[in-house]
Structure formats: structure tokens, C-alpha cells
């Protein structure tokens, strides 16, 4: 009989390289944590951990959505501007409603609904242009990135939109409060991450995203509604941007043209550090969460220590990002 063997030029079966591929980001995260604990005793304090997790939550929530977009072979550069625009819109609407509805829960709920609605709509717009109009995702979202950034500058008249002071009292706990000592942004991030992980691994949607990202022709020939799935990834991302904004606004109660600058790149970096392939076809949400934590911890560590000139912070970040990606590269001798 014929014994089937692997084709030449490919590693035979899973080798040791695969494990590193899986563990790379976790190893990097552990190294950072150990280094942090050695450098500063406050690093592992409850307060510091809470700080890092809570402020990573915005990027984290967005990055979970970005994981799906990238896995399905797309990209979204507009999320940072979108967050700024939604934050501005939300503040404007809530401030307008305070005189008639009072500075209470109801106004905040309306504000949240506005944020979610605006996120859905913005995501849908991106997705529609990309799938139905067949414009390159890079171009579409580069365009909407500029549009939202300008819109928020315009809304704020070049300055800063500030939330009504009465509302801050009521809304503040959404960022600063929590449940059983865990602050809300962390809880929301965790829930979004778990749902994302389930969505990616356990649902047809996640499988379709990977298939489309690998080869959209195969997906189309397999009766997958490629446009619909792609559109849904952008809509989902928009919704998550809305959720992230809901968590962001109560922190400083303001939005300006500098809100959310470069969030898109941080989110994309977190996704890639986590092991999702930039060209699509493979994604993992838990990796993205690890990537977000790595990015957050680098910042934190650099602030907690005086080892490097602050001018070099960006360089350190860059080196760690590249290292994390090298660590998890698959071991393919013949490319």
C-alpha cells in the first residue's frame, strides 16, 4: 500500500517551534512581570495592577474587535479617531440633556446608547465601503480616520469638550468604581475578552473569519457569505469602540482632538504581538489580551524605573514588540 508522507520541504509534524509559537507572548509577559517585580516593589501592588489593567482596558476592548477584523483579512485604522469622535458626541449629547433631564442616571444611559449606536453606525460605514463598494480596507479606514478626527476637532471647536460637572459625579464610578474591588473597566475588558475568545474558537463566525482571511475564494466557494461576515467584523469592532468610549469618558470627562491618538496602532500592535497574523487567516483573542497587557506593562515599567532616558521609551517599546513577534514566529527552515 501507499504510505502517505509529508511533502518534502515542510517540517514533519509539529516540532518544538510550535510550542514557542503558542507560548511566546506569555513568556514575554512573564519576563516583564518578573523584571517589574525586581525593579520596583510597588509593581505588584494591588493599586498598580489595577491602574495598569484599567487603563489598558480601552485599547484591550478595541483590540479584541480588531482581532476579528485582522483575522478576516481586514484592517481598521479609524478606531482611535472613532473613539475620540464618539467620546465628543457622547459628551455633547449628555451636556445638552442635563438641563431637561437632570444630571442623573437617565442621561448617562442615553449617552451610552448614543455611544453604542454611533459605534455600530461607524463600523457599518467602514464595513459597507469595504465589502459592498470594494474599496481597500486600508484606504477606507485611513479616510474615516481623518474624517472622525476632524469631526471631533470641529465639535470641540479646536479645544476640549468637557462633561458637565454634575454628571461627572454620577458617571465617574463607571471608570473609578467596581465590583468586589475589581474596577469596572477591568470587568468589562474581561467579559469582552472571554466572549471574544469563545466567538473566535467556538462559533462558526470565528471559523469563517479565519477561512476568509486565509483565502476568501475558498470561503466563497464553500457557500460562506464572505461580505456579510466581513461586514460583521467591522460592525462588531465599531460596537466595541463604543463600549471602550463608554469606559473612557468618565475617566477625565473630556474629549479633544488629541483623544485616542494612535490607539489604532496600539490595538493593531497588541493583536500582532498576541500571535494573530497581520495578513489574516489565523487569530487568537487570548493572545491579543496578552499583547495588550505587554504594551501596558512596558509603559508602566518605564515610568516606575529610571533606568533609561524617557527619550528612549519609544525605542524600548519597539524592541519589545519586535522581540515578542520573533519569539512566536513559526520555525520554518525553508520559508
Amino acid at each position: 500500500m501507499t504510505t502517505q508522507v509529508t511533502r518534502p520541504g515542510q517540517p514533519a509534524g509539529p516540532g518544538h517551534g510550535i510550542n514557542l509559537h503558542v507560548l511566546g507572548p506569555i513568556v514575554a509577559l512573564l519576563v516583564l512581570i518578573v523584571a517589574g517585580a525586581l525593579m520596583n516593589p510597588n509593581f505588584l501592588s494591588y493599586a498598580n495592577i489595577t491602574n495598569v489593567l484599567a487603563r489598558s482596558a480601552f485599547i484591550g476592548i478595541i483590540a479584541v474587535g480588531m482581532t476579528f477584523v485582522i483575522t478576516a483579512g481586514g484592517l481598521d485604522l479609524s478606531v482611535g479617531s472613532m473613539a475620540a469622535f464618539i467620546a465628543g458626541l457622547m459628551i455633547l449629547v449628555m451636556n445638552l440633556l442635563v438641563p431637561s433631564m437632570g444630571a442623573g442616571i437617565s442621561v448617562i444611559l442615553v449617552g451610552m446608547a448614543v455611544a453604542l449606536g454611533a459605534g455600530l453606525l461607524a463600523g457599518f460605514l467602514n464595513g459597507f465601503l469595504i465589502t459592498n463598494m470594494r474599496i481597500e480596507a486600508f484606504i477606507v479606514t485611513l479616510g474615516t480616520m481623518g474624517i472622525y478626527r476632524s469631526l471631533v476637532t470641529w465639535l470641540a471647536d479646536g479645544g476640549t469638550l468637557s462633561l458637565d460637572f454634575g454628571l461627572r459625579e454620577a458617571y465617574g464610578p463607571v471608570y473609578y468604581g467596581g465590583l468586589l474591588g475589581v474596577s469596572w473597566p477591568i470587568i468589562v475588558f474581561l467579559v469582552v475578552a472571554i466572549l471574544g475568545e469563545i466567538g473566535m474558537r467556538k462559533t462558526a463566525f470565528g471559523r469563517y473569519c479565519a477561512a476568509i482571511g486565509s483565502n476568501d475564494q475558498v470561503a466563497r466557494y464553500s457557500s460562506v457569505d464572505v461580505n456579510r461576515i466581513r461586514l460583521l467584523t467591522y460592525v462588531g469592532l465599531g460596537l466595541l469602540v463604543g463600549i471602550a468610549t463608554i469606559m473612557y469618558v468618565p475617566r477625565l470627562g473630556s474629549a479633544s482632538s488629541s483623544t485616542g491618538v494612535l490607539w489604532e496602532l496600539e490595538a493593531i500592535a497588541a493583536v500582532i504581538i498576541g500571535g494573530t497574523m497581520l495578513k489574516g487567516g489565523f487569530g487568537r483573542v487570548w493572545g491579543t489580551v496578552v499583547g495588550v497587557l505587554i504594551l501596558g506593562l512596558i509603559d508602566n515599567l518605564l515610568n516606575l524605573t529610571d533606568w533609561v532616558s524617557p527619550y528612549l521609551n519609544g525605542a524600548i517599546q519597539g524592541v519589545i514588540i519586535v522581540l515578542a513577534v520573533i519569539l512566536q514566529r513559526e520555525n520554518r527552515p525553508e520559508g
Binding site: 462558526a204 477561512a211 486565509s214 483565502n215 475564494q217 475558498v218 470561503a219 464553500s222 487567516g281 489565523f282
Partner: peptide, 24 residues
């Protein structure tokens, strides 16, 4: 290779791709 199978996926994922509804 171009339209039938997702080459970088396993046999299981390819086998069920077209009928995934049955497994969800």
C-alpha cells in the same frame, strides 16, 4: 488549491467549512 481548500488549515476545519451550521 486556490478555491477548494484552505491550505493552511487542518483537515477538520476544511471538512466542515461548507456545512459548519450542522456543527454549531
Amino acid at each position: 488549491k486556490g478555491r477548494g481548500l484552505v491550505l493552511n488549515m487542518g483537515m477538520r476545519e476544511n471538512l466542515t467549512l461548507q456545512s459548519l451550521g450542522q456543527f454549531a
